[in-house]
Design a protein around this nucleic acid. Structure first.
Lengths: 340, 340
DNA sequence: CCTGCGTGTGCAATCGTTTTCCGCCCAGAC
DNA sequence: GTCTGGGCGGAAAACGATTGCACACGCAGG
């Protein structure tokens, strides 16, 4: 901004060489300087409200003390908790977070990723991965430190932190079966994402485990994890004449779309049809009806991802590990026994 | 990350001096270099996937091409739209956004503000201002470029972009009066914020304009713009024996708290009591009942603030202006005529 | 043939730090 | 009194870009 004081000025005021000032102010090297002069320097720094110029430091140390976060859209309520988790642990270690919204646009994503690299971020946390993503796998092979949150990339050793998609869906389906449902539909998410895919597979397997044969017409897939795409897919299912008594949505946004379609068709939830979402986004407990959904600890996912990245920055050749955090089924009022 | 190519390498590959490479790659100076060699340099840059080192550039140019955003909590649904507005226009001009969450903690805010300055941000957008804030007024006087969003600081010439708080509340109160309400309460927000204060004043004035005398017991104030503080304040009002037929909440979070208290007391909204919120946060249209509220164009507020900051960066001694964007009343199902 | 000018390029300094390498000083041992 | 060695602190070289300045060259005009 305006003439911030520089290290040289601090040094002058303390009557020492700039080198000494640098050492005095840096905890790692302050042992090299006489305690008395160290105090002098620190006093001078305090009086001048000295803040080291991060760019100069970064240029020299080849570390920016910043990490980038790539996500589809901050406006999606799923992400703020993740981001807070990330920021809180990174900030505690002195790192700054750079957020970039891709809007699911691959072109844009590439650009944003490049600007992050231009800014010399020390690492990247990625929430936008596709299963076959090669932008990230290439970068990973080139040594870019990264960890995936929420979604993963197929067949890669990129570390990741995700919720337990499989178990979450299994719990949801089992719950519906216990209530007496047999015609259970799934509105799947985009299959190019790991979440869309593994949730869909979990749905199939849960039915299978219960000895219920899958009616292929009850499995539809939304093109995006959004309300409108979710609505589109479930509308198509009904228009094809399918009549499920319960729906498992691949996430809460899609569940919102399901609710819209239920309303269009004057079906009451849960009286006429049950619905389970996924994620337990903020405010879904205040919907009409309050949504039963699979809770995923998003803040912890973010925090854990940040910790993992920090570990890998400190120790570059740590083996890549993938953490999955447990999901829990939270029952509210959108599920009930099927009407007879 | 790993050995990103440097300008020197690009220059070598193109067979020119690093100076020339710099000029060739920089649109502002590229006219100084022969078109043919410019093409050579650009080709070399492309082949190497060269990205200029932002820290080196920033160090030399004394510009970081980044701006900081200070907000209370990203997790509050009010903020993501504002942030997107900011990021979208800043990104279009090549700026990066640094987000910091203060959690309404003044100490933390000071620290975060300092780290932003250490990172040499070119400007700051602030959503956490208090009416009497001196951290920011001082910084402003020192020449730190900033603009306030949403909230303002009293008696200062810091530029700001806000919604029309006064008009918004006036519309809400008038609407309730037209429905036949006379015992209209206001759950105000913290009075150390400009929003809390001007909304409260607008409420008083709207009553006055309608010739309704203010019952002081119907004006309570929440300590924070949160659900629990909102609930606490409205609960206190009821416990004092007050019986409004309508409530104007200072924002949607507080309105959520009002709804909680209505439920506690088995009052139905809108049958027994009407409620109007403020902000039109995402998802309040899906509450039970869908919330009537004052819509504020948050994305535009963010975008406008960013544009204003950009203007001031380009032209430092632009006169400070304050923009207020129009609010609109959106009627849903939480308001009705009072029961007779 | 010389001067002058414009165009295109290179040289070198610089931004604010960190860091390696030295040299100084002084205490203590002989 | 000289020598040794440790502890402090300074000199200078980076890091990767930008930029004012100088220089080389070609060409036109006198």
């Amino acid at each position: 901004m305006t003439n911030s004081p520089t290290l040289k000025e601090v040094a002058q005021r303390a009557g020492v060489h700039v080198t000494t000032a640098s050492r005095a102010l840096n905890p790692a090297t302050s042992s090299l300087v006489n305690p008395a002069t160290m105090r002098r320097v620190q006093a001078a720094a305090r009086e001048l409200r000295y803040q080291p110029n991060a760019m100069a430091r970064g240029l020299k140390t080849a570390k920016s003390m910043s990490v980038g976060v790539l996500l589809p859209d901050l406006t999606n309520p799923l992400f703020p908790p993740i981001v807070r988790g990330i920021e809180d642990v990174l900030a505690a270690s002195g790192y700054t977070t750079l957020i970039a919204n891709t809007d699911n646009d691959l072109e844009r994503q590439r650009t944003l990723f490049d600007t992050l690299r231009a800014r010399q971020v020390d690492g990247v946390i990625i929430a936008t991965a596709r299963r076959d993503d090669n932008l990230f796998t290439e970068a990973h092979q080139q040594g870019v430190r990264m960890v995936m949150v929420n979604r993963r990339v197929d067949q890669s050793d990129i570390p990741s932190v995700t919720g337990d998609d499989h178990d979450g869906i299994a719990m949801a389906v089992r719950h519906l079966i216990e209530l007496g449902h047999t015609r259970i539909a799934h509105v799947a998410g985009p299959q190019h994402t790991s979440t869309g895919r593994t949730r869909q597979r979990a749905y199939r397997q849960a039915l299978d485990d219960a000895g219920i044969e899958l009616d292929p017409g009850l499995l539809v897939t939304a093109n995006e994890f959004t309300e409108v795409e979710g609505a589109k897919a479930t509308r198509a299912m009904f228009e094809a004449g399918k009549r499920p008594t319960a729906v498992v949505a691949a996430n809460d946004m899609i569940a919102l779309g399901c609710l819209d379609v239920f309303n269009e068709r004057r079906m009451r939830c849960p009286d006429d049809i049950s619905l389970v979402g996924f994620n337990d986004m903020p405010f879904v407990d205040r919907l009409t009806p309050p949504l039963s959904t699979v809770h995923v600890p998003h803040y912890q996912i973010g925090a854990e991802a940040a910790r993992m990245l920090l570990d890998r920055l400190a120790n570059p050749d740590l083996p890549a590990k993938s953490i999955t955090l447990p999901a829990t089924l939270v029952l509210r009022e959108s599920t009930a026994a099927p009407a007879v």
